[in-house]
Design a binder for these strands. Structure first.
Lengths: 121, 121
DNA sequence: CAGTATCCACCCAGATACTG
DNA sequence: CAGTATCTGGGTGGATACTG
């Protein structure tokens, strides 16, 4: 998010600090999908229906600036860019899984429609 | 949040579903402070420096609509309104504490400046 | 393929004033 | 005390067209 110009608590509140990093509109999703491993830009886009290239790029750049995501550009034609979690991003695994676990119960089902992790890899 | 009119994933993604509920600008903070017990409107406001009455009211109403927070109005003069977590809200405790724990490490300190939990109750 | 650039509608949130 | 009402600027994100 990285806003809160006049937000006294942000400097001292760990809950909001975390939410600022992963609470963006698409950040949680991106992080979640990257938990399964490296993904190309296009693959990530397919994982997140509804996101525009503009938004995905923007959110990825913010995640990169936060040090959560690593961006690797290949000097190829056609272009190829791989996104993966950094060690810091990886350290969010438990947090993201915690969000996921609660969400599954909240959505009223223990059995979630299979995600990429169950389909690929 | 409750937006995402054209957001295909929201129906099926538990991570985003959770983030939609707690990821609002102040929701995480509100939930976090209510973990310690019931708080009046004014007390909550003092806990969250920077929030306006308007915003606090709005976020609390959304949390109430989500079934995470309970609002109890006393027929007194001066008025008194107590906010507390519902059972559903309480079930988020681990999630919120998980966000907090990660945030503390991220902010580079194991020892957090004492919060209300250490000062009151 | 992986973006950027530009335009623009919308709505979020701050400030301020007022009320039961 | 615990809000509500109103106005308003600025930021956010969608659509579209273009590029290396």
């Amino acid at each position: 998010m990285a806003r809160h110009k006049t937000y006294d608590c942000s400097a001292g509140c760990p809950v909001e600090a975390t939410l600022d990093l992963i609470g963006g509109k698409w950040k949680g999703l991106i992080l979640y999908h990257l938990l399964d491993g490296t993904l190309r830009f296009g693959a990530l886009r397919k994982c997140i229906p509804g996101v525009t290239a503009r938004m995905l790029t923007q959110q990825l750049r913010e995640l990169e600036a936060s040090g959560l995501v690593h961006r690797k550009v290949y000097a190829e034609v056609p272009p190829r860019v791989d996104y993966s979690l950094t060690a810091l991003g990886e350290s969010l695994r438990e947090v993201v899984l915690s969000l996921k676990a609660w969400g599954e119960v909240y959505l009223g089902r223990g059995a979630q429609r299979p995600q990429r992790s169950a389909l690929v890899r």
